[in-house]
Computed example of a mutant assay.
Amino acid sequence: MTGPLRIALLTYSTRPRGGVVHTLALAEALVALGASVDVWTLARGGDGGFFRPLDPRVVVRAVPFPDLPDEPVGARIVRSIAVLADAFTPHATQDHDRGYDVVHAQDCISANAVLNANARLRATGSGGSGGSGHLASCVRTIHHLDTFSTPQLAACHERAVVAPSAHVCVSAAVAAEVTRGWGIHPTVIPNGVDAARFTAAADDRAARSSWADTLGGPYVLAVGGIEPRKGTADLVEAMATVRAARPDLSLVIAGGDTLFDYRGYRDEVLASADRLGVTPRILGPVEHGSLPSLVAQATVFAFPSTKEGFGLAALEALAAGVPVVVRDLPVLREVLGPTVRYAATPTDVAAALLTAATHRDPALTIAGRALATRYTWAAAGRAHLDLYHRLTRTSTTA
């Protein structure tokens, strides 16, 4: 192998979900360290590119993925895998005299697509790649583990854990789950945090009251949309108690674009909110440049997720100096330590939100900002490059 490592990172969407945010930041960290990086993605519904601009050194390969009305989730997953697998070219092409040295999938859809693409190329005898003479093995980041009832999703999830040749987790807690469930020992590489972007938004006095004015007063903010994993139902129940004591505080929910269909859960949550007298402001995806100020101007940031891999959004809120209340999960204890308030039930969440909103703790603010700055994408990029070099050395000597 000559020249810099040639790396393919694959993700399932162009839109601002946690795994996509991770993929883009990692790609930029890797090119800053001298690697050559292509990011492959499904461009859903006519998307032309990612939700934010990228370092021009990162090559974006967006595969068109038209929406089909009323397509069931299982069929959408199968089609997603097939479309990305058909487009992905891990081997040498006319544009490149060698294939990818590393192929790194960030979710179960893209991992299955890589596995299918490799199988197709081996079957046709066209799998030669670069100087090593074979296809690059699939590396998989397991951000968190899910339990699915849809057969296609369950199969996608299982194969994407078992079949890749190397695994990364962004926290030791999730890595331990993988080891207990499958006997696999992933490499742990924490995420980075773009702390400066959120700290700057908190210090921007000119924009300090813009979101509160727009939203009608102080607010508790949650991101990730309305879905089971984000614990939205518990948050709505907690907010009924909060508003009884602090009627000035509203609930604002941002984000939430996903391949999955959570309409049933959303309907249940909104019906519960109506019964409880909670009227959430649902913003949907927020423009990338506007998100830091939305976070920075929140009275409290609520993060009652039932499953997480790292807690990046909570760290961004800490960087902005905002009090954070999270679900009491081992992974969040690992990553966030004593810088946030923990809660296990809706009653606990309500109490923690009220305490955070009413009694600001300067020591927690200082500790939270310091913690957020310790997680950097430069460090994450270096750790990934170290792993890639180990894997390529092993591959060429095998």
Results as ranks from 00 to 15, higher is better:
Ser110Met: 09
Arg79Ile: 03
Leu121Val: 00
Ala29Ile: 11
Val31Phe: 01
Ser126Gln: 06
Gly130His: 15
Ala25Asp: 14
Leu42Gly: 04
Leu42Asp: 09
Leu54Trp: 04
Ala92Ser: 14
His91Ala: 15
Asn112Pro: 00
Gly46Leu: 11
Leu121Ile: 03
Asn118Ser: 10
Ala75Phe: 14
Leu135Asn: 05
His91Asp: 12
Val58Phe: 11
Leu42Gln: 08
Phe51Pro: 01
Ile77Gly: 00
Val103Met: 15
Asp95His: 05
Asp70Ile: 00
Ser137Thr: 14
Arg76Asp: 12
Val59Pro: 01
Ala27Lys: 04
Val63Asn: 09
Gln94Trp: 08
Pro69Glu: 07
Thr41Pro: 00
Thr124His: 10
Gly133Met: 11
Ala85Pro: 10
Asp97Glu: 12
Val59Asn: 12
Val114Lys: 02
Ser110Gln: 12
Val139Ser: 11
Asp67Trp: 08
Leu115Glu: 06
Pro66Gln: 02
Arg52Met: 07
Ala111Ser: 13
Pro90Met: 03
Ser137Gly: 15
Pro69Ile: 01
Gln94Ser: 10
Asp97Ser: 08
Ala123Phe: 05
Ala85Tyr: 12
Thr89Trp: 04
Ala75Pro: 13
Asn112Phe: 02
Arg122Ala: 02
Ala85Asn: 14
His104Lys: 04
Gly128Thr: 10
Ala117Cys: 09
Trp40Asn: 01
Asp86Ala: 13
Cys108Trp: 12
Gly74Asp: 14
Arg61Ala: 04
Gly133Pro: 03
Gly133Tyr: 13
Arg98Phe: 04
Gln106Ile: 05
Val102Trp: 09
Arg61Asn: 11
Ala85Lys: 14
Ser126Cys: 05
Arg44Met: 08
Gln94Val: 12
Ala105Met: 04
Val139Tyr: 01
Val63Tyr: 05
Gly74Ser: 06
Ala29Asn: 06
Phe51Trp: 15
Leu54Met: 15
Gly45Phe: 03
Ser137Val: 09
Gln94Phe: 09
Ser129Cys: 13
Asp55Ile: 09
Glu28Pro: 00
Asp101Thr: 08
Arg98Cys: 08
Thr124Phe: 07
Ala62Arg: 03
Val78Ala: 13
Thr89Tyr: 00
Asp101Tyr: 12
Asp38Gly: 02
Pro56Lys: 01
Val73Cys: 06
Ala136Met: 07
Arg57Ile: 07
Ser137Trp: 07
Gly34Cys: 12
Thr93Ser: 14
His104Trp: 08
Val102Phe: 12
Gly48Trp: 02
Asp38Thr: 13
His96Ala: 13
Gly46Lys: 06
Ile109Gly: 01
Ser80Asn: 07
Pro72Gly: 00
Leu115Gly: 09
Pro53Lys: 10
Gly48Cys: 04
Val60Phe: 02
Pro56Cys: 01
Trp40Asp: 03
Ser129His: 11
Asn118Gln: 13
Glu71Met: 13
Gln94Met: 09
Ala136Leu: 07
Thr124Gln: 14
His134Gly: 15
Ala105Phe: 08
Pro69Lys: 03
Val63Trp: 08
Gly99Phe: 07
Arg57Thr: 10
Ala85Phe: 12
Ala32Ser: 13
Arg52Asp: 05
Val139Asp: 01
Arg76Leu: 07
Leu135Tyr: 11
Ala32Phe: 13
Val114Thr: 08
Asp38Ile: 06
Gly99Gln: 07
Gly49Ala: 06
Trp40Thr: 00
Ala43Lys: 02
Ala92Thr: 14
Thr89Met: 10
Gly130Phe: 15
His134Ser: 15
Trp40Leu: 04
Glu28Asn: 10
Gly48Val: 11
Asp55Lys: 02
Val60Trp: 03
